[in-house]
Computed example of a mutant assay.
Amino acid sequence: MAAASAWGDAVPPSAALAPTGAAVPAGVSAVGLLDARLSGWYREDTGELFRGVPIGADDVVVDVGCGAGVNSVFCVRHGARVIALDRQPRLLREVRRGLAAADARAATALAACAERLPLRDGVATRLVCTELLQHVDDPRQLLAELYRVGGVGALYLLSVPDARQEALQQQALPPDYLEQPGARRVIGRDAFAQLVTDAGLTVLEHTQYGFFWSIWWALFPACGVELDDPAHPVLDHWVATWHALLQTPQGRQLQQRLDRFLPLSQVIVARKSGVRAQDRHADPEDTTDAAA
């Protein structure tokens, strides 16, 4: 998943990319993946990237701001044609490796600016844009591009960090990080829903997830470890505590309540229901915009 905190991707790609039946690394990756799946992500049995967003062989998925490609790889494993877009060459190289490992023959990873997608109108049946709207200069322009690229009836999976989690991070992050330029936008829950509806989309579900990660990221700065090897007693104890909680009879119910109270991110599933005058219908096999 592209969910992220101020420190980077919240779900280690090695966990979320694990195919059905594969061994998942122990520790934070395994517990993070379990938490995500209980929250609605990566439903291998139903082929849903997130609940209400099924992925299949008839789908063209456009993943904008694809990051390490976790969502893109899930989609190609479930038969979709995928166009993964990001502006960072390093991330695109990682995406291509992930797609190659998934034996994706109908997938493309392209460098692109989110505010001007190099795709024709109406080509996508599924559009994924996670943890990106808070970073761009004009979220409305990005949403307008997402609307343009989606076909009638297309499903949209959108997420941004939750404002409460952002406030927590402000207390946990070291001063030198807070002094860095380029602070990102904080998008409240009402504002997020308004942005999506103003873009012409119909909101089907607006929910939150990731209390587990909110606490993990709040603890992380104090541990003095690197993100690629986050072994530390404080973090390990938190991971073990959360995993034990999820095994209790009331654990899932408590997870849902805490996810609403202090989530890592908020998620909107939306649909493009109508046709605007400027919408055109293109050959779904011809996805790129020759003028871009």
Rank of each mutant, 00 (worst) to 15 (best):
A124M: 07
V269H: 02
P161F: 08
L262F: 07
A23M: 14
E285Y: 05
D236I: 01
A4K: 11
M1N: 06
D63C: 09
V28M: 13
P54T: 10
L146E: 04
V31L: 10
Y209C: 12
T287A: 15
A26R: 11
P25I: 09
A172R: 03
Y42A: 08
R280C: 12
R260N: 14
R280E: 15
A22C: 09
P230L: 01
P118W: 00
G52V: 03
R276A: 14
F74A: 01
L246C: 06
D103E: 13
A244P: 09
I187W: 11
V76T: 15
C66D: 02
V73E: 02
Q194R: 13
G150D: 03
A26G: 15
R43W: 01
R81W: 01
V60Q: 05
S5K: 07
G150N: 00
P249Y: 15
A124V: 00
D121W: 03
R185M: 09
L264P: 03
A102F: 07
A193H: 07
A10G: 15
S214E: 00
R77Y: 09
R280H: 12
Q250N: 10
C75R: 01
A231C: 12
T46Y: 03
A277H: 14
A112D: 01
G47D: 09
G40H: 02
A109F: 06
H237K: 11
T288H: 12
Q194C: 15
V61L: 14
C129D: 03
D283H: 09
A282P: 08
L227R: 12
C223Y: 02
Y147V: 02
L33A: 09
A282G: 12
L168S: 02
V136S: 07
V76N: 00
C75V: 00
L143C: 02
V196K: 06
L235V: 07
D58A: 13
L178D: 09
A101F: 04
A101Y: 08
A112T: 08
L168I: 04
G98H: 06
